[in-house]
Computed example of a mutant assay.
Amino acid sequence: MTDDLDGWRARAGDLADRLVRQGAITDPVWREVVASVPRHAFVPAFYDDASGLVGAGDPRWLDAVYNDDTLVTQRMEHPEQPGFAWSTSSTTRPSLMLRMLELLDVSGGMTVLEVGTGTGYNAALLCERVSSGNVTSIDIDPALVDAARGRLADAGYRPHLAACDGALGCPGRAPFDRVIATVAFERVPWAWIEQVRPGGVVLADVRPRGMTWAGALARLTVDGDGTASGPLVDCTWGFMSARTGVERPGIPEVVHIDATSVRSRTSEVGAGALHTPGLSLLVWHRLPGVNAFPGEDGTQITAPDGSWAKVSTRVPARVEYGGPSDVWTDVEAAHAWWIEHGRPGVGAFGLTVEPDGQRLGRRTSEGTEPVGDLG
């Protein structure tokens, strides 16, 4: 397929040069990798919101493929929510892919596990850098894996591919020098840490399903005791959330709320707190499983226990709430901690992953200070 299209090498080279100018590529080796891999071979069609599926017969196809855009390549309906197709796979914008590959700090000879095969394009970039035999790529969707296997082979790459739950890693191919997740998880799976050599790196997109803008990239170094820790890197818009099953998109589960008894009050913290970098991360830390539904005049949030609040953007904010607790008090507690500690951004935080869970901390000159419960 790579020989059927005249001029793809020039397009790939132009894309690589644009990524260098943007700062997404600083290592010249990655510039050559991008210029050498035919992205069009991995995106035979993509979805356009206005006109549906766009493929090779459409004059817009090739320009889009070699632009710095995320292109949705698979959609599906939720089995319990018919009538709407959710995006379930894509080829992510190359600037984010290359930013992550540079953060991964991979070099020739290293073994890499990629979680989230998708179209296969990122796996191809890794194969070009470290050779096919050193790359393992897994995805929960067998159809995606089969399609990627064919595309990779046509382009001359033969990494190890498997259809399995990404949260489990690939123990049969471990240990790895690097793990990179190109799908978002709310928690870094312990299996990944176990499957990386001491001194190795796990690069994961960590973000809540119901408030995706609150996430970050976690670059974790595996310690000799088997734990892993490292900084968070700002990334407002990352990857699609991991699917828990092949037949279900990675979207938040519906929380049923009781709106029969509504209480109201005012607050000095408005809905904008949920969209403030750093602070939104703390809100998620305080309220794991939070869902947020922005509207024209405010935002409604729900917690897994059915507590909810609808809060206006303007301060003093009007707060309407119900359910087992006043959930907005948790947002106010996170806001108070954030103000007291100098309004830290995402990069001020780090993550530690241990067998019993993960902990958010604030990075200081002396080390990492646990955030705790923000109370």
Rank of each mutant, 00 (worst) to 15 (best):
H341V: 07
W30Y: 08
F349H: 13
P324G: 08
L71N: 04
E296H: 12
L101P: 02
S307C: 05
A155Q: 06
S95E: 03
V179K: 12
A317Y: 07
A191I: 08
D225K: 10
P198C: 11
A334H: 11
R286K: 15
V327F: 06
T276H: 09
P38Y: 11
T236F: 12
H335P: 02
V65P: 01
E340P: 03
G150P: 02
T364W: 14
A228P: 06
V115P: 04
A64T: 03
G289Y: 08
R60T: 11
R178G: 03
V331I: 13
T299D: 04
A174I: 08
I193R: 03
D27G: 11
M110N: 10
V311M: 01
I140Q: 04
W30H: 09
G289V: 06
L126A: 12
D49N: 07
A85Q: 14
L98Y: 01
S325V: 13
G357V: 15
P189D: 01
L351N: 04
R187A: 15
G120N: 08
W237I: 15
A204I: 04
V34L: 06
G55H: 11
W192S: 03
V145I: 09
V371S: 00
D4Y: 13
A153C: 03
G272W: 14
T117E: 03
D258N: 11
A45G: 13
E128H: 12
P171G: 11
G52M: 11
P288G: 01
D225H: 09
C170L: 10
P231Y: 12
S280C: 15
P316I: 10
S36F: 07
I25A: 05
G108M: 10
G372R: 14
R363E: 13
W308E: 01
A317R: 07
T136N: 05
P344C: 13
R9V: 13
W190T: 05
D223H: 14
F349N: 02
W61I: 03
P344I: 11
V233C: 03
A273Y: 11
S95A: 14
S51N: 08
E366V: 10
M240L: 15
I193V: 15
E102G: 05
M100H: 05
I180Y: 08
P355F: 13
V283D: 04
P324H: 08
I257E: 01
A163Y: 06
A167N: 02
D177R: 10
D154K: 12
T2I: 14
D49G: 10
G215D: 08
E369L: 15
G166K: 01
E186L: 05
S107A: 14
G118L: 01
P294K: 09
A35R: 09
P44G: 07
R31C: 05
V269E: 00
S325T: 15
N134D: 09
R219V: 14
P82L: 02
T266E: 14
A336Y: 07
D68E: 05
D225P: 07
G199P: 01
P28S: 10
G250R: 04
A143W: 07
L168A: 14
